[in-house]
């Protein structure tokens, strides 16, 4: 039974996550009064990349080659920490919220190294910026996790997967986490996925040298990571019951609500992206400063008990 849940969860993440990227992209285009690409475009992209030849920089070492696998593996491992179908994640002994943050750090570490490995200045720029942003994001995520742990007893993610009252403190903490998620998924105002201009790109600069199947793996990992973050935030703000294992109307509603809350967050992110401009790099300090302040406010709320 556990193995099945595990397999289903992995497949859900792998198959569903590009759809969220496609959805946000479509929404953004529509909001800008454009027709835009189809929702399924990320799948086509992945397929295209998988059938292309790969070009590897001649200065690159084994770090560069191994990075896509490390990133992919660490992201999938993180995906197993999230309770998706049952109230407890299939491998609940694996780790907690903090472990999640550190596992993401593993992938990021290798990606930044790979970016430096190609000896391209773009890579260095991207690596530097990515590490800068993520190091500032980490305290915010940690403090938000702290607030949640205070409310739910510990930082085990499974604890806030069921039905629970949404307190003001956890709501604010979730907003702080959303700030982090926007940075982690390289979206406006921190980063911009759509541009290849050296002044603005962060994540794109890091993967600039990648091509073919390696790039496909990295893109897929980025999509899975995005889905993990969205699910996490959704579980805090929109609590839901365990999946009823009976075919019927209950199952249908459950699935509907499950998708709807992801869509809500996706829409929110899309609107945010369209209505904001990208920040200068050094303004990121203010951005995360504000997010940290939000977390502190959440902590104060949690102490008061609201």
């Amino acid at each position: 039974m556990k193995i099945i849940i595990l397999a289903v969860q992995l497949l859900t993440f792998l198959l569903l996550s590009p759809l969220i990227s496609g959805l946000i992209s479509k929404l953004k285009n529509n909001l800008r009064m454009r027709k835009g690409q189809g929702v399924l475009q990320p799948y086509y992209n992945l397929f295209k990349l998988f059938s292309k030849e790969e070009v590897i920089s001649e200065t690159a070492s084994w770090i560069y080659r191994v990075t896509p696998f490390v990133v992919f593996a660490s992201t999938l491992t993180a995906a197993l920490l999230i309770p998706l179908l049952a109230l407890t994640s299939p491998l609940q002994y694996l780790g907690d919220f903090l472990a999640l943050i550190f596992i993401f750090a593993l992938g990021r570490f290798f990606l930044a190294l790979a970016a430096l490995d190609t000896s391209s200045a773009f890579g260095g720029m991207g690596a530097s910026r990515e590490m800068f942003i993520s190091s500032l994001a980490e305290p915010v995520a940690c403090l938000a996790a702290f607030v949640l742990a205070l409310q739910f007893g510990s930082s085990n993610i499974s604890l806030f997967s069921g039905m629970h009252p949404v307190l003001l403190s956890s709501l604010i903490a979730a907003i702080a986490l959303l700030f982090v998620a926007i940075a982690e998924t390289s979206r406006i105002p921190i980063d911009n996925q759509e541009t290849h201009l050296e002044l603005t790109m962060v994540h794109e600069a890091m993967v600039l040298e990648y091509s073919g199947k390696s790039l496909a793996l990295l893109e897929l990992s980025a999509a899975v990571k995005q889905m993990i973050w969205f699910l996490l935030i959704a579980q805090i703000i929109f609590p839901m019951q365990a999946m009823p294992f009976s075919a019927g109307i209950g199952m249908f509603f459950w699935l509907g609500w499950f998708c709807l809350r992801l869509i809500i967050i996706a829409v929110f992110v899309a609107v945010l992206e369209v209505s904001l401009a990208k920040m200068r790099l050094l303004r990121v300090v203010d951005y995360f400063g504000f997010a940290f302040l939000l977390s502190v406010v959440a902590l104060v709320c949690a102490i008061i008990g609201v």
Binding site: E54, S57, E58, F69, A73, S74, T118
Partner: peptide, 27 residues
């Protein structure tokens, strides 16, 4: 898990898709 998924990804990488790899100078 990290090792297993890594190996899994590596196998998928090796056996599926276009297997042509070219080493060229950095852009």
């Amino acid at each position: 898990l990290i090792v297993v998924f890594g190996v899994f990804a590596f196998l998928a990488y090796t056996f599926f898709g276009n297997r042509k790899v070219r080493v060229f100078e950095t852009w």
